[in-house]
Design a protein around this nucleic acid. Sequence first.
DNA 1: TAGATTGTTAATCGATTAACAATC
DNA 2: TAGATTGTTAATCGATTAACAATC
Lengths: 218, 218
Amino acid sequence: MSIQQDKIPEATLQRLPVYLYRLQTLQADGVGRVSSRTLAAQLRINSSRLRQDFHHFGGFSRPGQTYEVSHLVERLREILALGAPVHYVIAGAGYLGQAIAAYPRFGEDGFRLAGIFDINPKLIGLRFRGVAVQDIELLPELVGRLGVKLGVITTSPEAAQGVAELMVRAGITGIWNFAPVGLQVPEAVTLQDEFLSAGLMALHYRMQEGERGPEHRR
Amino acid sequence: MSIQQDKIPEATLQRLPVYLYRLQTLQADGVGRVSSRTLAAQLRINSSRLRQDFHHFGGFSRPGQTYEVSHLVERLREILALGAPVHYVIAGAGYLGQAIAAYPRFGEDGFRLAGIFDINPKLIGLRFRGVAVQDIELLPELVGRLGVKLGVITTSPEAAQGVAELMVRAGITGIWNFAPVGLQVPEAVTLQDEFLSAGLMALHYRMQEGERGPEHRR
DNA sequence: TAGATTGTTAATCGATTAACAATC
DNA sequence: TAGATTGTTAATCGATTAACAATC
């Protein structure tokens, strides 16, 4: 059974990591099997959605039988291509870059920090997860030498475009961008924007909505 | 003209901050007017989408006339209820909590850090944005005294549920949660989950998809 | 067997895009 | 005026939910 399948919906893709985390927690708790109803209830989603999401891949279980937790974890990790370690570099060693470098989860998921870079001399030499901050000019050499494909941008908005171009020239093919600007990258480069302010503002808006009372929400 | 309107679509709400940022940049660059076509091109979205989003509120411009940048900025800030400063607290003063405390953008947007808390004695007393880390036990008093409604959770997954309950009891009505667990909160509390791993995993998946070549993507 | 469960198709719902009249 | 633009309705597209046969 190959994991080669039709392009899966974006909405489904965004949920796979959520399923994986929940299932790993169940596994750690010693739960052997779980039904779509129970799992969906824990994630507070509709069980049809869950089954429909799994349906894009197939082979998760059989009618009448609940899901085997360990099998689901295995399949999801396979689908998400988390079998082999994934190396990545960070550009921008400020607070946010440090937070990502130090975030233990990414390591557990199989992501390995290969390098962290900045232009600020004060930051160069500081160590995170055993990796010392280097001058940004050294990024291309390291990326080329280790064949790193994944780059994280946690620089200022002003510096982000330049850093993105540097990364692309060095051979990076996927950029996780935390700078609140629209980056221009070649078609072949995959871009994932993470715009933290949007989350905060959306939350604040919905809080107001709640204040006005449910009768105003229709 | 009131901003009281029907519940706006979630998809539209998530885009409003993106529009606001782009428009503020244009404003800073001295751009006075902009068409939906130009603005949409800069954000790499369809111009119909932009006009449809604005249509939920009304009064952004008139047929035949382009948008006035300053008016759009004003309206969006009004819609997002960013007129008065919004106070918030952070629970969890690790790297991620520090990053949020120090993130200059939030301040510019009108969000003010009222307090930052942790259980780790080593972190207590450290200052971020002029605010000293305090023991988590002191959170309810401060939240009650200042009437803070917005709380950010950047603790470990294990501690998150307890902290959420502490916040809710203290009077917090909106929680921005960075811990990768499903929090149980009362109906009246607005919850915004920020699951960073999902972004990273989705990016990694799409990079593989790109590698397999566009012909496999249909 | 009887009750519960998945895989899968169909129905519903919501979001995006197209089209165009009214307007500048 | 002629060309361009918005607001708004309609058409399309995609995602969610419901329903149920096949299966345990």
